[in-house]
């Protein structure tokens, strides 16, 4: 199981939680499992999210591997200028 930290305003889509656990080994699996377990998160996942894995921010990268001890933080999709 991987612990995933959500940003605060996602708690309405995750039964009031800002930290959830899902079974996932990759970025893609994590997004799929989150959307399945918490359908309220699906609209935001569809619009786009970034993922911080042990402090490194990934904007896509489905196959990025996630270890059971990894720090995983879901973030809005990053944009720049």
């Amino acid at each position: 199981m991987v612990k995933v930290r959500l940003w605060g305003s996602l708690r309405h889509g995750a039964d009031g939680q800002t930290e959830v656990e899902v079974e996932a080994r990759t970025f893609k699996e994590l997004l799929d499992r989150l959307a399945e377990a918490y359908p309220g998160l699906e609209p935001q996942i569809r619009r786009g999210v970034s993922l911080s894995l042990d402090g490194v921010i990934y904007r896509e990268a489905w196959f990025t591997e996630i270890g059971p001890e990894s720090e995983v933080v879901l973030m809005p999709y990053m944009t720049g200028g």
Binding site: R5, W7, S52, D54, G55, V56, E71, V73, L74, M75
Partner: peptide, 15 residues
């Protein structure tokens, strides 16, 4: 100042 190991205000721990 934030430094290595700080839990950032937006979530991740800084390297």
């Amino acid at each position: 100042a934030a430094k290595k190991g700080t839990k950032s205000s937006y979530g991740p721990t800084f390297p």
